[in-house]
């Protein structure tokens, strides 16, 4: 066992971990931070993305011992004072998810992207989240959500500069007739 000290979502923890423990398992099983999920277990899908010292990483591809002394932020720690983070809010408002499994990682990767590029184009968003896989949405509304959040965080509530509207994304019913059928 190796002793580690980490700050996770603003709280300090001292724990003994096996060196082989992956950060995602430490977060979920030892700290109960189950907002961070395990998707693929092969470093591909990005669902387990968290920030270590402010940088997005795949927590299934980091040993917990490597985070010793670091500041870790999970999806559970991005909101402030009971308020959703602007990116969380944008995913909600723009319908940037269906099943929601990829969402914690999508949001953590997007926050990282927006820290580097506060006004990304659609293409830049798609490249910025290339490490995150969504098997439901086709990414359309995810990209809209990230650009909406970017506008919000720049202090411009009027949505992405390219189209300027803030209404929730329209669901493409033509591509999903079974949804209409049920409604």
């Amino acid at each position: 066992m190796t002793r580690i000290s980490v700050r996770v979502d603003g709280a300090s923890y001292d724990d003994d971990v096996e060196p082989r423990t992956l950060l995602v398992h430490y977060l979920r099983e030892q700290l109960g931070k189950v907002g961070t999920v395990v998707g693929c277990d092969t470093s591909n899908c990005g669902a387990c993305t968290v920030h270590v010292d402010g940088e997005a990483v795949k927590s299934c591809t980091v040993f917990a011992v490597q985070a010793d002394g670091a500041e870790v932020t999970t999806i559970e720690g991005v909101g402030q004072g009971g308020e959703l983070h602007p990116v969380q809010k944008a995913f909600h408002e723009m319908h940037g998810l269906q099943c929601g499994y990829c969402t914690p990682g999508m949001i953590m990767a997007s926050i990282d992207l927006l820290g580097e590029n506060p006004d990304p184009s659609d293409d830049e968003v798609r490249e910025g989240i290339e490490g995150n896989l969504c098997r439901c949405t086709g990414y359309q509304n995810i990209v809209r959500a990230v650009r909406h959040a970017a506008a919000d965080m720049r202090g411009n509530g009027s949505g992405p500069s390219a189209n300027g509207h803030v209404a929730p994304a329209e669901v493409d019913t033509a591509a999903a007739p079974h949804v209409v059928g049920q409604a």
Binding site: G46, K58, T61, D112, G128, G131
Partner: peptide
């Protein structure tokens, strides 16, 4: 190379 998460590590 890979994606931004991988490039950070």
């Amino acid at each position: 190379v890979a994606d931004r998460q991988v490039r950070h590590r």
